[in-house]
Structures are given as structure tokens and as C-alpha cells.
Amino acid sequence: MLVTQNKRTGFKEGFVAGLPLVIGYLPIAVAFGILSKTIGISLRDCFLFSSVVFAGSSQFMALNLLSVGAGFGEIILTTLLVNFRHFLMSASLAARLTHDLKKYIPLIAFSLTDETFSVTSFRQEPITKAFLLPLHAVSYVAWVTGSVLGYWLGSFLPGILQDSMSGAIYAMFAALLIPMAKKSNTILMLALSSGLINALLTYLQILPKGWSMIFAIVLASGIGTYLIKEEEVTENA
């Protein structure tokens, strides 16, 4: 009885937790569809990029490199660099997964994004499949649908509507972080220091694209393990 009830509420929560991601993804996915059409790739390839690769920033980068005539090898290598931060996120999430999710690991790994990771990490309750699967499914469907919609009817959409939504992802990240930062200065310091390192490295442009973020995450988390006392961050254990 209790188990089925948990399952049902988990499912609904996972679905609802995915809604802000839909608002955040749609304009970016639509932009991807529009750009695909602009540089002249087929609708099939646009769909395959979004449904098979499912990696936002890397997809834009690939279109960009394709349009300047870059080779496939170069694009694939850049994709690896741009998306390697997910290695860290997967490792962090893997340490918290419950046993019932083992079967779904390939599916969960495939559909892990910055946004689903953030939403999942800040969940206080155990991470169940009833929560995780709808969350990932909703964001995947939004991304793929948005890409195709953009390809089809992007040119009819008022640009200003899309521009207004381009801050939505940041609003979501901020809304996730703030309640945690309110409770704990340590969390605020972890996030701020990582953001500042990333800003500095991005500004200096000394690392290849994508690596500033990886470096910032590793450095700030690493320093944290030395500076932060055991009991200070316990919510996430």
C-alpha cells in the first residue's frame, strides 16, 4: 500500500519537476531546429541529432563547425570535450542511485543533462525510478519535439518570444540553488567559488571550450573536501 502510494506520488513529482525544463528547453530546441534548416541539413538529420545525440550545446557546436566545413573527427573530439562535464555529474548521481534503478542505468545515463541532474540532486527524498524516469522522459520529449517544431515552423515564431525564454534555464538553476544556499553558507560558497573560477577561466580563454566548467567543478569540489568540516553539508549524503 505504502509502496504503491510512493510510486504514484513519485511519478507525479517527476513529471511536475520536468515542467520547468520544458519551458527552458523548448526555445533552445526550437533555435536548434531553425539553425539546422538555415545551414541546410535535412529534417531527418536534425531529428537524429536531437534524438540520438541529445546534447544541447554540442549539437549547436556541431552545426557551427559543419557550416565552416570542419571534419567529422574534429567535431566528435570537440563534442567529447564540451560534454565531458557529464562524467562528473553521472559519478555524483551514481553514488546516490537506489537499487531498483539498476536496470534503467543505460536509459538514465543517456538522458542525463545538466538540468535533470540539478533537479535530481536537490531532491531530498530518495531517488526512485518513479521520479527519475518521467523527469528524463519529459525533458527528452521536449528537446526532440522542440527541434522538429523549430525546423518546421521556426520562421513563423516571433523572435522576441524565444528571446524571452532564453533566460529560463538560468532562472531554474537559480530557483534550485537559492533555497539550499539560504540554509547553508557552505553551499553558497561552493557554488559561488565554482562560478567565479568558471567565469575567470572563460574570460581568460586559456582552456578549450567546455573545460573551464570541468576545471571549476573539480577545483571547487576538491578544495571543499579539504576546507569543509564533515557535518556541514549533510543534506546530500
Binding site: 540532486s121 540553488l177 539550499m180 557554488a191 565554482s194 568558471n198 571547487a220 553539508v233
Partner: peptide, 9 residues
Amino acid sequence: FIPYTALGA
């Protein structure tokens, strides 16, 4: 710590 540092970055 990665959820917090990732979010910051």
C-alpha cells in the same frame, strides 16, 4: 559537492 559546484558553474 558536485551538485552545488556544477550549478555555480
